[in-house]
Design a protein around this nucleic acid. Structure first.
Lengths: 281, 281
DNA sequence: CTTGCGTTTGATATCGTTTACCGTTGAATG
DNA sequence: CATTCAACGGTAAACGATATCAAACGCAAG
């Protein structure tokens, strides 16, 4: 145990506990002499304030829940990197929750509330029903990464409809006419919106559109779904709604001897680091 | 704010606060009648105990620091997945720390101590000087993932020397005679041990050994280093000390028109999910 | 040498829980 | 029917900190 408390420092410095507390809270009124004295004692004892005890009276824990259910898509490592850095820069601490394992979302909600998190970042492709509202009801700020703006919950992400549009325009401009959409999970808003934008733009430009869905945002799901697609009548090019799906699709194409982009067009989304690796064919 | 406390429940149920506390602590003595009454009140109010307040008296926070400095190697996503699941299964909560950003390790140590974590998992290739001991001194359990067993710190990982040996044996058995080792950061114990095992085994089997180091465990570092190696006199096969390095090396080989394994042998380490993706050449 | 006023300081209540410790209760025993 | 004893429930003191408030302290002005 670290064991050294405010009282220990106060005793050692021969001052009141309040004085010690003040030297460690920014913007409190302490004389220079007092501060020096307390800091010396604190240094001797190796004291640093217990943030959890502090949170009891300040009602600020600096804790933020970082919730995800996708530990198989490498892009999430980049996402964790960025979120954790951003939080740390602001003096916040991410409490990581792996949703894929929890018995149910309800349990996660309860746990995060028990730790009095000040906010929650939901980095999930598909938002469990009632998850966001459960936090809102508890007065906890919620940000849904990659969600669809609803006016209910704050969202950080891209314009998925516009992204779909751009994909369609790009493929049509390259000369493909029959274009397909291969989405992630069907009920994810990202999937739906990207499809909507894609289909609208492709049709407007005179293309033929078909679509299907992979079961998850993962390599394997993309490979399996593209294998299925290639076994029947197929489109000339596909927009895969995520890079890791695209790499899976690429693998399926390679397996049946199709060259990309000559025999089959493929376009992904996310620009994850791996997308720049030149030896993925 | 959630706002509903033990006292609220006690008042509503018309019992003492102690009684409420007891119904929520496993293995405490409460009558069935009392329990029912309290639970009803708690349900009505939507109460669940504040774990941070509890930790004050129990001295158990259930918090564990999960510290990493490598958010660029996809294998770490698998590692996070496994660690978070394992912790959650045991009722522990991971507090994620991105070391790559912190001003210094000292600051991270202080922060984790301030949150009274019960243990720390260091998932770092190279352990910052004094990091582990700082925790030990504070009485915090430390596990160094991928570290070298020293008797000072608990380690979870593989036998790196044996792994190097296996790589050498495999390459020699495939007919390569001049074999090279391409490690990660030179001062990482993983790098050193894998090299030691590799060199010893290769020499024992009559092979010629050369070695060099990539600056980091990342695709780009692997690509750059292998590009350099291939520009001079080269070995017939290389043991790259990590899969993501290997993929980088593969990219370098492809870039100069070498076919693997015919023109150049390559063997990796970690068996990360991506290593099974068939379309990385 | 007062008076007045702004700055520091310390006592004390409080945050939401747990945990001795002790008094009640009620069933079982003789 | 009195006695014993285990099980239960309440009181009050922690846990480690902050916040309010009033007393003490300087110091300049009168």
């Amino acid at each position: 145990m670290t064991g050294v408390t405010l009282s220990d420092v106060a005793q050692r410095a021969g001052v009141s506990r309040a004085a010690v507390s003040r030297t460690f809270t920014a913007g409190a009124s302490v004389s220079a002499k007092m501060r020096a004295r307390v800091e010396a004692a604190a240094r001797d004892l190796g004291y640093s304030p217990n943030l959890l005890a502090r949170s009891l009276t300040t009602r600020k824990t600096q804790l933020v829940g970082l919730v995800s259910n996708n530990f198989h898509n490498p892009v999430f490592l980049q996402i964790f990197d960025l979120f954790t850095k951003g939080l740390q820069d602001r003096g916040l601490r991410p409490l990581l929750v792996n949703l894929s394992d929890e018995t149910g979302p309800a349990r996660s909600v309860q746990l995060l509330r028990q730790y009095a998190v000040e906010g929650v970042i939901l980095a999930t492709s598909h938002l469990p029903q009632g998850f966001a509202s459960a936090f809102r009801d508890a007065g906890v700020a919620v940000v849904h990464a990659f969600g669809r703006p609803t006016g209910q919950t704050d969202v950080v992400g891209i314009d998925n409809v516009a992204a779909g549009k751009m994909a369609a325009q790009t493929l049509i401009a390259r000369g493909y006419r029959h274009v397909g959409f291969m989405g992630g999970p069907k009920d994810a808003s990202t999937t739906q919106d990207r499809l909507a934008g894609f289909a609208a733009a492709a049709q407007a430009l005179g293309g033929m559109v078909s679509h299907s869905f992979a079961g998850a945002y993962s390599f394997e799901a993309g490979r399996v779904e593209m294998t299925r697609l290639l076994s029947g009548p197929r489109a000339e090019a596909y927009f895969c709604a995520d890079d890791v799906l695209t790499i899976g699709a690429l693998s399926a194409a390679q397996a049946v001897g199709l060259r990309v982009p000559d025999d089959l067009g493929l376009i992904g989304l996310n620009d994850m680091a791996m997308a720049a690796w030149a030896n993925i064919n």
